[in-house]
Design a protein around this nucleic acid. Structure first.
Lengths: 137, 137
DNA sequence: GCGATTTTTAGAATCATTCTAAAGGGTGTT
DNA sequence: AACACCCTTTAGAATGATTCTAAAAATCGC
């Protein structure tokens, strides 16, 4: 058994989620999980990685985003029928989508209250209730 | 002045929306506005047109869907970050999205009640509040 | 029917994403 | 350290949806 308690927070974060902390995953995780609420597309993260002098292929960015999502570290949000966005906030919440700047901002769950839900279709399970408030101007 | 009162319902529908009722637009409108609630992608509508022996190019299907949307005859729904869907129901309402079959079903506005909305960001206007209930199984 | 304006078209171009197959890296065992 | 095994990364090709382009065709008002 190795001394597990002196690992960097990011490595721990990945290990806890069952993701092998490879060099590239670590670099992307450092960028993603910096404490801010972040909503990134693959292309955005790729650019950011290059800006931070991390040499990485776009395919790896896609792989990693999908791995992180499968491991519960990220959550995919659908607001645009062209691009996929990933959210570092994996808890239940909603979004503002700024149509002009294509930016996303979290709406905390308690800021929006849904009183009534329609009956779930027979034999189905609700996976998620997504709310997107589209704003512009 | 022509005798306007003996036009087909579909032609009237297009004229009322300020859309020139060309042959192709009419054919697509006949398919779309048949009374059912419909949620189509460009590819789906293109296949359907061919099945009905309407010879049309995919580019025209895209043009027409966008024209109809701009004219208020359709509404675009975002549920999938790959494909765009268009809804023949342009009134305020929400959606079930069946993740397995990629099907959409309307949720009437009164079946879901949103009690509290967060404050609108300064200087912005709410364009729409979208609710998608994702189900599977 | 004429001419001006819009539509339609096929195909090329674009953009995001996934796939492929090969090279590289990580981990545990000896 | 060397080995073997398995997982990751990669560049580039492939895919799929959508948009663009430029030319041909249809439409409309006169």
């Amino acid at each position: 058994m190795s001394t597990n308690d002196c690992l960097s927070g990011t490595i721990r974060h990945l290990l806890d989620a069952g993701v092998r902390p490879t060099r590239h995953r670590l670099a992307l995780a450092e960028l993603l999980f910096d404490g801010r609420e972040r909503h990134v597309s693959a292309e955005m993260l790729n650019v950011e990685a290059r800006e931070h002098l991390v040499s990485i292929s776009l395919a790896t960015v896609y792989n990693t985003l999908h791995h992180f999502t499968a491991a519960g570290l990220l959550r995919e949000i659908v607001v645009d029928s062209r691009r996929g966005y990933f959210d570092t906030n994996t808890s239940d919440h909603y979004h503002f989508f700024y149509e002009d700047s294509l930016c996303l901002v979290d709406i905390p769950i308690e800021a929006l209250e849904i009183m009534r839900l329609p009956a779930t279709p027979a034999g189905k399970t609700i996976r998620r209730v997504e709310v997107v408030v589209r704003v512009s101007g």
